[in-house]
């Protein structure tokens, strides 16, 4: 939280402290988001019906929409990587949105959580590239002309290494910034000041989750496609 402001009461932290576990806040809240998703997934799949109702309906709509979006962009190959992308999206959007609930905190407002996800993305798309193309994957780094290779190779390597860094910083900056703004506005005008911001920030949270998901999808598309 922002420096100098009173420290908020974080419910999961307090609960874990009282049991005697000293776990960093972002890890505790990442577990909380995971637990929430697991419970919701369990509830949604407990009574599966051909004509979905309630929670099952909601999850079928969300996951079906995401899957058709991925297949539209990557093609049929996208179905193989879809579970990874969908899990990432659901985790990030849950993590972002629980930060808006009083007493809870976003796991994504910490660089460590985001860096873990971004490095996983980096390793995952390179793994797919190597699996699809073998040693020929290096052609993805060599640019369009053979005489440009000595220049393009370091440039491409730098821009690939910059990807996890920019993914991390973008999510971290947006979510942490939101929380600081909320804390400051709450100090200025409690409830009245923060209430309108909740609409803006719930939208921004969704957009940031979607941006992370979409960029991961674009990177995977790049490594699954032919080099050109």
């Amino acid at each position: 939280m922002a420096g100098g402001l009173p420290h908020p009461v974080l419910l999961v932290d307090v609960a874990l402290e009282s049991v005697g576990l000293h776990i960093p806040s972002h890890v505790a809240y990442a577990w909380f988001a995971m637990a929430l998703l697991i419970v919701l997934g369990f509830l949604a799949t407990r009574k599966m019906a051909m004509v979905p109702t309630g929670l099952q309906n909601f999850f079928e709509l969300a996951i079906g929409g995401l899957e058709s979006f991925v297949v539209e962009n990557i093609g049929e190959k996208g179905r193989k990587v879809f579970p990874f992308l969908c899990a990432l999206f659901l985790f990030i959007i849950t993590g972002n949105l629980i930060g808006l609930v009083p007493g809870l905190d976003s796991p994504t407002n910490n660089v460590n959580t985001n860096a873990a996800m971004a490095i996983t993305v980096f390793l995952y798309y390179n793994f797919w590239g190597l699996k699809m193309w073998g040693p020929g994957y290096i052609k993805h780094f060599m640019g369009p002309f053979w005489w440009l290779v000595p220049l393009m190779l370091p440039i491409e390597i730098i821009s690939h290494l910059a990807r996890p860094l920019s993914l991390t910083l973008r999510l971290f900056g947006n979510i942490r910034g939101e929380e600081i703004v909320l804390a400051l506005l709450f100090a200025l005008a409690p409830v009245i000041g923060t209430f309108p911001m909740y609409f803006l920030f719930s939208l921004a949270d969704c957009i940031q989750a979607f941006v992370f998901f979409m960029l991961t999808m674009i990177y995977l598309k790049g490594s699954l496609e032919h080099a050109h």
Binding site: L61, F210, V211, M214
Partner: peptide, 30 residues
Amino acid sequence: MVFNRLIKDRQTRDAIMNASVLGLNLVTST
């Protein structure tokens, strides 16, 4: 998707997304 209904205007949404993608690429590569 729920996300599509949050802002009906697709262009605004795309503009926000592009703005948050473009700037950081320049800085992080450097």
